[in-house]
């Protein structure tokens, strides 16, 4: 990874008149944390990084940033937003374009071929976090943790994030500028998490999810972190009609999680943000990946690969599967 080239490119991009700001990553304030970094002028690029801890999907901010009404007499700021994307993040951008959530010409996409990211929780189990932000890089297949003088090689298999183990598109599917060489997609293991649940009896599956959904505190971080959950008027915030009661209990939590997973069916790009941000460890990715697999295997469709594609749930084929219909 050529950090100098990244920073130089970023400085050029933010200096453009038609770019409002650039969203990248910077080192966090402690441990293995990395924070999204909003750069408005070339001075900000010195903090910009790209490391195996840059797991957050920044495409979320394209729709998360509030668009306030423009005061009378003022012009709306129509400058572009520049964004660093990994393979999965670029799929979110493509899917947003498909859904007309954003316009292609409103973003400058800087693609970063991604060799795989670390699940910091796995790393912290082996090497606890400290109050100093750690420096981590890639070393061949593996990861390299630098702590002062000490350099520790961490085998890839030990700390690679689950979504990266299952990743089929490590290279950005769209970008205006690409930094670094494309990476060779790696062999993808079977999705054991989903298969494990499918192998259970219905009652066991129910018990499994009952335990998981009961933990939910409805902080909505999964919804907010998702680059594709961007409805301005979310059904979960509605009071009339009220779809999911505000009460936090197993019944309402289940309704919420079914709704969330369903709304992402045929749209989810498997960036794993929902699961990553969950403070109580609900394996939300399994719900999404189950539906994504159905869509891939039975309809031959993968969202977020082609910005010109038809949205999956707003299109059909006359010969779609219907064996379940009486």
């Amino acid at each position: 990874m050529d950090l100098d080239k990244l920073r130089k490119t970023a400085a050029e991009v933010v200096s453009r008149d038609d770019v409002k700001y650039l969203i990248g990553w910077r080192r966090g304030t402690f441990g293995y944390r990395v924070a999204p970094h909003f750069i408005e002028d070339a001075a900000g690029v010195d903090e910009l990084i790209f490391s195996p801890l840059c797991i957050a999907n920044l495409a979320n901010y394209l729709t998360l940033t509030e668009k306030l009404p423009v005061p009378r007499g003022q012009e709306a700021d129509t400058r572009k937003v520049a964004l660093l994307v990994k393979g999965c993040d670029s799929r979110a951008v493509a899917q947003l374009i498909v859904e007309k959530g954003i316009k292609r010409e409103d973003v400058v996409v800087i693609g970063m071929p991604c060799p795989g990211m670390i699940d910091w929780k796995l790393l912290a189990e082996r090497y606890p976090e400290t109050d100093v932000a750690a420096e981590i890089g890639w070393k061949g297949e593996d990861f390299l943790l630098i702590r002062g003088e000490e350099e520790i090689t961490i085998p890839r298999a030990e700390v690679l994030a689950e979504k990266c183990r299952l990743c089929r598109h490590p290279n950005p599917v769209l970008s205006d500028i690409t930094i670094g060489e494309a990476v060779e997609p790696w062999a993808v293991a079977e999705d054991s998490g989903v298969a494990e649940i499918e192998a259970k009896e219905a009652a066991e599956r129910w018990d499994y999810w009952e335990e998981q959904f009961s933990k939910c505190i409805r902080c909505y971080s999964c919804r907010n972190a998702c680059p594709l959950c961007y409805c301005e008027d979310c059904i979960l915030d509605r009071l009339d009609p009220i779809w999911v009661n505000r009460a936090v209990n197993f019944s309402e939590n289940t309704a919420f999680h079914l709704a969330r997973a369903f709304h992402l069916a045929g749209r989810c790009v498997e960036c794993g943000e929902c699961e990553r941000v969950c403070p109580v460890g609900i394996p939300l990715g399994k719900l999404n990946r189950k539906l994504a697999r159905t869509v891939r295997e039975e309809y031959g469709f993968e969202p977020g690969l082609d910005p010109e594609a038809e949205p999956f749930q707003a299109s059909f084929k006359p010969d779609d599967p219907e064996e379940f219909i009486l």
Binding site: A35, P36, H37, F38, N60, Y61, L64, I217, R218, C219, Y220, S221, R223, N224, A225, N245, R246, A247, V277, P279
Partner: peptide, 28 residues
């Protein structure tokens, strides 16, 4: 503006804060 730019607007920091006590009242 700088601090809140990356914020997801989720409820983790408040729901899991031991001193946050805000509540809403609803009829079901």
């Amino acid at each position: 503006q700088r601090i809140s730019a990356p914020c997801l607007g989720c409820g983790i920091c408040t729901y899991l804060c031991p001193t946050c006590y805000c509540f809403d009242i609803q009829d079901e």
